[in-house]
Amino acid sequence: MIPAQFDYVRPDSLAEACAELGSDEDAKVLAGGQSLMPLLRLRLAYPSKLIDIGRLDALKGVHDRGDHLFIGALATHDEVMRSPLVTAACPLLALAAGHVADPATRHLGTFGGSLAHADPAADLPAAVLALDGVLVAASAQGEREIPAARFFVDYLETSLRQGEILSGVKIPKLGPGWGFHYEKFVRTAQAWAVVGVAVAVKRSNGSIAEARIGLTNMGATPLRAHAAEAALRGVELGDQVRQACEEAAAGSSPPADLHAQPDYRRHLARVLTHRAVRAAAGSP
């Protein structure tokens, strides 16, 4: 398919990019293009202008900032997946990034792009949500920090304002005792998640001290499974974990599509959450 006509600019600085974006409400930011280009080619989006930020060095790389990592919006999924910093401090992101689509997509698609696109079926949003990431938005007015819990507003909709560009994400380091797992349920290897569950678990003396659970494709936005998190707090590793995970789908409103109906997705969320919590807790 062939996109409709659009203008294209490639600014040399983030400030210039923000100015371009602020001056045209129909403009779209282009990074790796792995979500935007299909929308253009299917003529599901008709932006007036593409602002290509792909070469802005300020948005690249993964940086250690003491109590948190700063992951540049332009870090590719492949970089995140292989980053020693990510693997050491927040391996959940590396696990989730490794599940994104296929190797070609992972080399082009960006961490920030996936979050700003806010597809609830994408793997990274749930992981960032589970890790209480803080998204950094740049604009002509400066920088603004948005907690992940307030970033995802609706289907393909974030709290970014006109003229704001996601420059990167702060991921707090969780410290010792935490385990992680991303459980993705797919029909074929490179398909979208039917359901995904991103889990961080802190173990303490054979019990779960704290669990954070992000759900992929269980609603219009990525979700935290708050009820299951609460039910898991203090639970001994063993049979009670399964029971606590029965709360995993509480408050979700999963979509109906060709791959699954909502009741089946709720069921999967429960089963997969249990599996993910067990794996994250290192419990057989």
Binding site: L42, D102, R187, T188, A189, Q190, A191, W192, L258
Partner: peptide
């Protein structure tokens, strides 16, 4: 291949019409 009740083909892309790869 799935058609809806109005006769629209729903499986027009490879995201909806699933082809296996070697990994599957």
């Amino acid at each position: 291949a799935v058609y809806d009740a109005d006769g629209n083909l729903l499986t027009t892309t490879m995201a909806d019409y699933l082809l296996p790869s070697a990994a599957d």
